[in-house]
Design a protein around this nucleic acid. Structure first.
Length: 733
DNA sequence: TCTTTAACCAGA
DNA sequence: CTGGTTAAAGAG
């Protein structure tokens, strides 16, 4: 009797056994279709044996085993198992979370996988065409073709990000014989790279160091200030491994960053098959890319956190760019950290991993200081003429301001305008104003379902909750006292935008935040507008801070940095420092000296003093000292048990009960449990939430305790309307 | 999670 | 007795 043990997408942490007379160990890692209850599911075979774990009569017979797709490699299955244990998440859901959605659909086989046209290549005939052959008024057409001329190739996600019409335009080019479609990528490729500028001494050193330890598990922390050319290090190390036909995995924090990085890699390695994987792809594109990685056709895999689960037969290098970014941690379902899993995978595959950042997470920096990671530093900007921006604080206790804009900032903006240079006004708050206030009775508009204030959006005269997305029209009068004198209170991007328009009526001002780039192609269009120099003043949120080069940007103004200075979250300061370093790094990248002005009420705060000196190391050291004395990560290990229920008391009561059963769990003596407390945002989407913090001196203690405790909590009688989850290594408390 | 089944209650 | 809602149990 042959029994297969199958991982299924159900929230129970166990495998399900099926009879499969023809299966053998070669089927481990294959996709199988099985009956489950009265429905059909597809799952992954994790093992094959002749010992069912339930009485034989309960066994059903498995359906078709998909032979068309090669089985998942053992290493990936191990990663899934590790994930399930470490994050205390059902194995089946871990496995299914890591696979493209189409593979989860029952009965889906490669025979039905659409052979999608992915790439368009410039033909010899196209190469002799110049932009002047295209009418000037066909803007997108020109844009598209100039990209083709530059790179010789254009891929689906790049042209799709550009304009919805680009597909049609590419077909026009094809009819003219300028481009060809490429359906499948070649299995073997002739490696080549285009000539590059010589690396700086520091870059060369970093590259040599990494290359010297290729083929062994070596975690590198590449600490390079903004503009120091970390990407060049990635590229040159990658070049060496690609030449050996190895696969490279590159993780970036956000989808927005993939097109730019993809273009960079394409340009450097024109013949190397590359796929990008992120949640912005449709399901067949995602499957296509995943399959190319899994069968070894794609040699560069570039993506967001989900790409960490991509099977690779010949892994050679993993790169995690902006490793400190919180986006690498999934905030729901399987709460994994792609950065941490990347280190696991590198160890497993015995290959180097490069964690890159201008402001490394304190966790990684600490690892480097104690010698577990190797530290590489880039202190100088890669373009020799480029100097670091000068950073100044403006003391808002003594400086007058109108509409949150102080005189020095208005002066600097004016000057920048005169010199025809771009400026960036950074305010990390969307909307017109973060609150609506009644002047006579002090009533403030709050969300019905969340403990949050409603944000005023003047454009469509709406009040919006930024936590649950709920919208309602602005009330004409105070609902509490009837006074019509209700006022927007505080400043968001939209309000600053209108204030700037008033101040600088002739300036071209562009607002960039999640509201303004809601439409699919808006982001790319805005980037182009900025690059073409058609913008004088940019107003925006952190979207603008991340990883984009604005060559003509000379001035950065930060308006409301203080808000997270004295936060209850012990990571808020680290986050602010990193964010300000990033946004400051936007100024003066190429040949223009940059200026950064920060409005603050606390100009003497150590964070700003360190920021002015742009001294990450010193700041990190003092932060680490504080973390150590306060017993915070990276010196202790944390987990959070969160519960949500219609009323707070129920959630708290549940957590109290789990605390009681914790005392009989294994390793309890080495664990510290804190009192259950209401969550920072207590009400969210109509539910009230509480949490319980667990602290341990070692990962091992924490894990032993959590496994035991988690089981006990699961065994507790279920309560209706109460949901709970464990978050291991949480980033926000 | 999804689905089935049992349990409960109101109303006729 | 019926219809409807709700809670608990089980899935191989």
């Amino acid at each position: 009797m042959t029994v297969i043990h199958v991982a299924l997408d159900v929230p129970v942490n166990r495998l399900f056994d099926y009879l499969a007379p023809n299966a053998d160990s070669a089927d481990i890692g294959r996709c199988v279709r099985v009956p489950f209850g009265n429905r059909q599911l597809s799952g992954i075979i994790l093992s094959v044996s002749n010992l069912p774990s339930v009485p034989e009569r309960k066994l059903k017979t498995a359906g078709l085993i998909d032979q068309a797709i090669p089985p998942l490699p053992q290493s990936l299955l191990e990663l899934f198992e590790f994930c399930s244990h470490y994050y205390h998440h059902p194995i089946g859901q871990v496995v299914m979370n890591g696979l493209p959605a189409l593979l989860r659909k029952p009965g889906y086989t490669t025979s039905r996988i659409p052979k999608q046209i992915q790439e368009w290549i410039l033909t010899d005939a196209g190469r002799i065409i110049t932009l002047s052959d295209i009418p000037a008024r066909s803007k997108t057409k020109r844009q598209l073709f100039s990209l083709l001329l530059e790179n010789g190739i254009i891929t689906a996600d790049i042209y799709k990000a550009m304009s919805p019409h680009s597909r049609k335009l590419l077909h026009e080019f094809k009819d003219l014989g300028w481009v060809e479609q490429r359906t499948a990528l070649p299995g073997k490729f002739a490696f080549s790279t285009v000539p590059t500028l010589a690396p700086t001494t520091e870059q060369a050193h970093a590259i040599a160091e990494i290359l010297a330890r290729i083929g062994t598990f070596t975690p590198w922390l590449l600490h390079g200030i903004t503009g120091s050319g970390k990407t060049e290090v990635y590229l040159q190390v990658a070049a060496s491994l690609l030449a050996q036909q190895k696969q490279i995995l590159v993780l970036v924090p956000e989808i927005n960053l993939t097109p730019q990085l993809e273009a960079t890699f394409r340009k450097r390695f024109p013949n190397t098959p590359l796929v990008s994987l992120h949640s912005g792809l449709n399901s067949s594109e995602r499957l296509q890319g995943w399959l190319q990685a899994q069968c070894g056709e794609a040699n560069i895999i570039l993506g967001t956190r989900l790409a960490i689960f991509t099977p690779m037969p010949r892994p050679g290098l993993i790169i995690v760019d902006e490793e400190q970014d919180h986006s690498f941690k999934q905030q729901d379902g399987l709460r994994y950290s792609a950065r941490d899993l990347a280190v696991y995978r590198a160890r497993q595959a015995n290959i180097p991993i490069v964690l890159g950042s201008a402001t490394p997470s304190l966790e990684s920096y600490h690892q480097a200081r104690i010698g577990r990671y190797r530290l590489l530093q880039l202190h100088a900007r890669a373009i020799s003429q480029a100097v670091l921006p000068a950073i100044h604080c403006i003391d808002m206790r003594v400086t007058p301001a109108q509409e949150r804009l102080s005189e020095p900032i208005l002066d600097a903006l004016r000057q920048s305008l005169d010199q025809k240079q771009q400026s960036l006004v950074f305010i990390n708050r969307r909307g017109y104003s973060p609150a609506l206030l009644c002047k006579s009775c002090r009533w403030i508009a709050t969300c019905k379902r969340c403990s949050s204030r409603l944000v005023v959006h003047l454009r469509n005269r709406q009040l919006r909750c930024h936590y649950c997305g709920d919208q309602q029209p602005i009330t004409p009068a105070c609902p509490q006292c009837g006074d019509p004198d209700i006022m927007p209170f505080g400043h968001g991007t939209q309000r600053i935008e209108s204030a700037l328009i008033k101040q600088f009526p002739n300036a071209r001002i562009l607002r960039v935040d999640r509201d303004s780039i809601r439409h699919k192609t808006a982001w790319q269009t805005m980037l182009d507008t900025i690059h073409q120099g058609k913008v004088d003043i940019l107003v925006g949120t952190q979207l603008l801070a991340k990883g984009h080069d604005f060559p003509n940007l000379a001035l950065v103004c930060v308006l409301n940095a203080d808000s997270s200075l004295y936060s209850t979250d012990f990571r808020a300061e680290e986050h602010l420092f990193s964010q300000l370093m990033q946004v400051a790094g936007r100024a003066g990248r190429a040949h223009i000296p940059g200026t950064v002005l920060i409005q603050t009420e606390f100009p003497q705060h150590p964070l700003y003093l360190a920021l002015i000196r742009q001294d990450y190391a010193a700041y990190a050291q003092t932060q680490l000292k504080e973390r150590k004395s306060a017993s915070f990560p990276p010196f202790v290990y944390l987990a959070v048990l969160r519960a949500e229920a219609p009323v707070l008391a129920e959630a708290l009561e549940f957590l109290h009960q789990t605390a009681v059963i914790a005392t009989i769990a294994k390793e309890y003596a080495h664990i510290q449990l804190f009192d259950p407390v209401p969550a920072t945002m207590t009400r969210l989407k109509g539910l009230e939430r509480a949490q319980l913090l667990i602290q341990a001196v070692s990962r091992k203690c924490l894990q032993i305790f959590l496994s035991d405790w988690h089981q006990r909590i699961t065994a507790l009688p279920a309560r209706s309307k109460l949901r709970w989850h464990l978050d291991v290594d949480p980033l926000t408390l």
